[in-house]
Simulated assay, not measured.
Amino acid sequence: MGVLSQYIERPVVEGGAAIATVQVSLIRPVTEAVKPPRALWVPFPLGRPLGPPNRPDIQSDVLRQTLELVDQPSGPALVDYPDNYEDDISAEEGWSCPVTFPTAEPKTESDALRAQLRTEVQLLRPWFDEGLRNRGRTTMGVSGKGVDAISEMLDILVSFSLDADMTVPDGYNEPMPKLLRYLISDIRAFYSEAAISKPGAMFPSPDDLEEWFFLETIAGDVFYQVRERLVSADILVLIANGLDDDEIDGRLALLAGTTSATAEERLRQPGISRELLKAAAEDFKVGDAGRFSRSFVPMTMRDRRSERASFADAK
């Protein structure tokens, strides 16, 4: 964005638009390196450039101070937003999900796992509806279906993760496996919007919300299972293209030694469909190997599946 701002501010004779630009900065070192014409650095976490949720006073103030930068002469100008809202942010540390899930390890049988997920959906749905009434909007729907299809979306992931026979119902925007990326967006939206919808409750930090989803919910563990299937397909494609084990670990952002330790097992793993291998091969051709698997589990949570049991006990 900073580089684009520089281009926009160029005189028309130099190919620009001669329009003043402003922007909000969340990562100061990056902004200092790029040197955009005018930027306001804010002390908020990634994903919250305007400040804490449900604080329109702070959010409007950030917008006001950002727009006021347009009066600054051509920079680069990097202005710090007053860091005096620390109490508002630190108060979020006391967040907890409004729902207490039954303590259970994810089942390995398809029907039992689906039953666990239906329980989660039933417990979360009233809070999702409460949040929808209060906010008047939801980010669900990118897959082509809304909240009434949330159990169906989870069923599709379970079938994919367990190598069960899978028939995708009509009504979705994309076929498998492309549909996966839209399903994960809608499922994460449902869980997150439900979890933050208790009136008067503190908002979680982005890290708290990720830890809760991936370490405490059954759906989070299904995401890990799906990622393993996708990584298997990526590894097979990269092996077929002649990459060695260390190169594959690096290309897929895996822990060192992962490919060498699991290659034989993955080569024998059933359920890696022709369609999935084709999608992985297409990503490799354009230099984007591992795109599906990277999108399923954030980098910060990628190697933390083993913490699920201890995390639940600590809670």
Results as ranks from 00 to 15, higher is better:
4 L>P: 03
5 S>N: 04
7 Y>T: 11
11 P>V: 10
11 P>L: 09
18 A>S: 00
22 V>I: 00
26 L>A: 08
30 V>K: 02
30 V>T: 09
32 E>P: 05
40 L>E: 06
41 W>P: 04
42 V>M: 04
43 P>R: 06
46 L>E: 06
55 R>W: 13
62 V>P: 02
63 L>D: 13
65 Q>M: 07
66 T>R: 03
67 L>N: 04
68 E>Q: 08
69 L>N: 07
69 L>T: 07
75 G>Q: 13
81 Y>S: 15
81 Y>M: 15
83 D>E: 10
83 D>N: 10
86 E>D: 10
89 I>C: 05
96 S>D: 08
103 T>D: 15
104 A>P: 01
107 K>F: 03
107 K>M: 14
111 D>F: 02
115 A>M: 05
116 Q>F: 14
120 E>M: 07
121 V>K: 11
122 Q>H: 12
124 L>G: 11
128 F>Y: 14
130 E>H: 11
131 G>S: 12
142 V>I: 14
143 S>W: 01
145 K>N: 01
146 G>N: 04
149 A>P: 01
150 I>G: 01
151 S>I: 02
155 D>Y: 00
156 I>Q: 11
159 S>V: 03
159 S>I: 00
166 M>Q: 09
169 P>Q: 00
171 G>Q: 00
174 E>R: 04
179 L>M: 06
180 L>Y: 10
181 R>L: 10
193 E>C: 03
196 I>A: 04
200 G>W: 14
202 M>L: 14
205 S>F: 09
206 P>K: 00
209 L>T: 02
209 L>C: 01
213 F>G: 00
216 E>A: 03
217 T>H: 00
217 T>R: 00
223 F>M: 13
223 F>I: 06
224 Y>F: 08
234 D>I: 06
235 I>M: 08
237 V>S: 12
237 V>N: 13
238 L>I: 09
242 G>P: 12
245 D>P: 01
253 A>L: 11
258 T>N: 14
267 L>E: 09
267 L>N: 10
269 Q>A: 00
269 Q>H: 05
270 P>D: 14
274 R>G: 01
275 E>T: 11
276 L>Y: 04
277 L>N: 02
279 A>F: 12
282 E>S: 13
283 D>V: 12
285 K>Q: 11
288 D>Y: 15
290 G>C: 11
290 G>E: 09
295 S>N: 10
296 F>M: 15
302 R>G: 03
310 S>P: 03
314 A>C: 01
315 K>Q: 13
